[in-house]
Amino acid sequence: MKFLVIEDSSLYQKIHVKLLKNHFPEAEFLTAGDGWEGYQVYEKEKPDYILLDLLMPVMNGVEFLKLFRDKNPDTQTEIVVLSADVQRMVKEEVLDLGVLTFIHKPFTEEKAEELAEIIRGCRDAE
């Protein structure tokens, strides 16, 4: 399994990876610091799951999602949004763009456990 973490804070890239590794020790983890860099990594690596921050420089998370959906209508990659934004309208906009789930920051051990359950559920259903 391959994860791509798109997050502008390099410290939190490491924290997110560490929390996910507890549940998926065999997985490969890739990181990118903004939406545009993340898209380049996606094209090259085709990860199974993308953890996507929203507020980022160069290309934000919503712009990334629009580009991603536009260019990859048949992709199998699932996107998980991980954001500090608590606005209802933002959550609705992001969910309309087709994401697996929307998680409010901070990403904690409990939230990583919940996400791991969702991912295992997805894989069992395949």
């Binding site: 939190y12 954001s83 500090a84 934004d85 608590v86 309208m89 933002v90 920051k105």
Partner: peptide, 29 residues
Amino acid sequence: FDAIREIGNVILNSIVGAMGNLLEVKLDY
């Protein structure tokens, strides 16, 4: 700086976003 920025991001988004929800407007940050 990175850690403090993220503390600010989470805390301030939570408060300002709640104000946006109260006013039913979408705020860009």
